[in-house]
């Protein structure tokens, strides 16, 4: 029984340790490429099995994105690639260790394949991608509104009567909470995925290691459970990153439009 949070080192290339989970991540990426090219080469009006699966996944996330962006199909198409590839990568890497014989390939006493999502660093990397995409898009839309979203000094300028002072301080405090919340998103996204997948593996190893009798049929329901949780966690990761990206986008867009309206009102007031 060997359980370790850190993955095993396969080899060292130019001072960089290549671990089993890194190797598997590259392998999963190649598998995904192969799948995509296979589906693309066989596109037909009457779809085959692979095409139905691919269309189902893409269609599901497309509908969700169109809903999240309030019916804007152009924007939905722009973010579709990111969300679907996040889902496919996480889904395949969660289920990778279920593939027969992958756990029997050993080099120098080290398992070559290990689920990439059972390594904390890779889930943190995936969560940071979501974090960066949502924030960089917001900055590129309007840097001042993005800063104003977190540091809410604007409400100090709107103080007209003494009761507004309390409101202004509350707004500043809420802005600080938003900063903490934005950083907590990275931790919560990554810890959820890592915890589920790693716990599934640990549970199977522990059940199989209890005694000789629990080695054969008993782990099967636990395998089924970890298959289900792998699918659900991939779905949850994709849906949550979709809602983070679109939520950030929508708040900035609203703020920009609000600013335009305010300016128009001021112009009208000046004119009259």
């Amino acid at each position: 029984m060997n359980i370790s949070v850190a993955p095993d080192v396969l080899m060292t290339i130019a001072g960089v340790n290549v671990t089993s989970s890194m190797f598997t991540a590259v392998f999963v990426t190649l598998l995904l490429f192969a799948f995509v090219f296979y589906v693309k080469a066989k596109l037909k009006i009457v779809p085959g099995n692979a095409q139905i699966a691919a269309e189902g996944v893409v269609g599901f996330f497309y509908d969700q994105l169109v809903q999240a962006y309030g019916g804007d199909k152009k924007k939905a198409k722009r973010y579709l690639g990111l969300i679907v590839s996040l889902f496919l990568f996480i889904f395949i890497s969660n289920q990778f260790t279920i593939i027969p014989l992958t756990q029997s390939i050993v080099s120098d006493g080290v398992n070559v394949f290990r689920a990439p999502t059972s390594h904390f660093s890779s889930t943190i990397a995936l969560a940071i991608i979501t974090f960066l995409v949502s924030n960089v898009i917001a900055i590129s839309m309007s840097p001042t509104k993005w800063i104003g979203n977190f540091i809410k000094i604007g409400s100090f300028l709107k103080i007209r009567k003494p009761a507004d002072i309390g409101q202004a301080f509350l707004d500043v405090f809420l802005g600080v909470l938003d900063i903490v919340g934005e950083l907590a998103k990275v931790i919560s996204l990554s810890a959820r995925l890592f915890g589920n997948i790693f716990a599934g593996e640990v549970m199977i190893v522990v059940i199989a290691g209890l005694s000789t009798f629990t080695r054969y049929i008993i782990p099967v329901p636990f395998y089924a459970l970890s298959l289900l949780s792998g699918l659900i966690q991939a779905l949850v990761f994709a849906v949550l990153s979709l809602s983070f990206i679109s939520g950030m986008h929508n708040t900035i867009e609203e703020a920009v439009e609000q600013g335009k309206e305010d300016r128009a009102k001021k112009k009208e007031a000046m004119a009259t």
Binding site: S188, R192, N196
Partner: peptide, 9 residues
Amino acid sequence: AITESTGIY
């Protein structure tokens, strides 16, 4: 799955 996350932490 989201409710579960505190348990997962």
